[in-house]
Design a protein around this nucleic acid. Structure first.
Length: 271
DNA sequence: AACGGCACCTGGTCGC
DNA sequence: TGCGACCAGGTGCCGT
């Protein structure tokens, strides 16, 4: 999926087209996503006005005058603003048509995404309740991350990808941040020093910030709300580069699998 | 409680 | 050209 930068890119792309507008109709063509799209979603939201669109972790929150719709892009989802007359493509599962003719299409080949109704108390929704701090929140400090690593035997890479610790860090940016901080992905979290935790926190914030300015990373099918790819893939230092030389020291980058996810690191720069 | 592994689903790529 | 194996941006749930 879309990790945090791709969701942020999607949000900032669609928000200006939708905020302040009235929902004319929601059309669901395929409700079988990660969880079924509620069958009464269209009825509940019809006629409501979209007040604001917010990103929380990798979720998109559509705050309407009738309640909040929670969206998630899963591994392969995207949302784009489209012309009403353009043909619907395969895997376009949902259409949101506004009163002024603006059309949003939700596209998700693997259907790992979700569209849920949260009513008025969206903050109490279990999926939102379980989330840790945003990486850009002042709560997410080096000291916070260091304390979170104490007594944890899981690999540090798994820890920074754990949503209860910090949200938004997926496989690509976990690899990149660990390289930037000089820490091997498989190291037990409790073996990370305070200085390393501080560096890692900075690296996470840094890589996510840069990726957002580049419109996110497109490996295969991520497109922004205009249907354009993100350009951060050109700046990836380790992800997808196993067997190639380290950009810092020239050592051959290695691949290990952690929790089923490809993890690439430099054996020389990362200890 | 913490942790590793698996499942969900489609499609692209690679080797034979 | 065809076919099967394997891999992919996430995350909830299962058993140990």
């Amino acid at each position: 999926m879309p990790e945090l930068p791709e969701v942020e890119t999607t949000k900032s792309g669609i928000a200006p087209h939708l905020e302040g507008k009235q929902i004319k109709e929601i059309r669901v063509f395929e409700p079988r996503l990660r969880w079924p799209i509620p069958s009464d979603l269209a009825t509940l939201a019809q006629g409501a006005t979209i007040v604001s669109i917010e990103r929380r972790a990798k979720y998109l929150l559509f705050h309407t005058s009738a309640g909040t719709v929670i969206g998630h892009l899963g591994m392969s989802g995207s949302m784009r603003i489209a012309d009403l007359n353009s043909p619907r493509r395969k895997h376009d599962h949902v259409e949101l048509e506004m009163a002024d003719g603006t059309l949003l299409r939700y596209h998700d080949p693997r259907r790992f995404g979700a569209i849920l109704w949260a009513g008025d108390n969206w903050a109490e929704h279990p999926t939102i309740l379980a989330l840790g701090p945003e990486p850009f929140d002042e709560l997410f400090t080096g000291e916070y991350l260091f304390q979170a690593t104490r007594k944890r035997s899981i690999p540090i890479k798994t820890l920074i990808m754990t949503n209860a610790i910090v949200v938004g860090v997926g496989n690509i940016y976990a690899n990149e941040a660990l390289f930037m901080a000089g820490v091997r992905p498989k190291r037990a979290a409790k073996r990370v020093t305070r200085a390393e935790a501080y560096r890692l926190r900075d690296a996470i914030v840094d890589v996510l910030t840069k990726a957002i300015t580049q419109g996110g990373t497109t490996l295969k099918d991520f497109v922004n709300s205009d249907g354009q790819p993100g350009y951060f893939a050109q700046q990836l230092m380790v992800y997808g580069r196993d067997g190639e030389p380290c950009i810092t020291c020239g050592e051959v980058l290695k691949l290990v699998v952690i929790a089923g996810r490809a993890s690439v690191y430099c054996p020389s720069c990362q200890r």
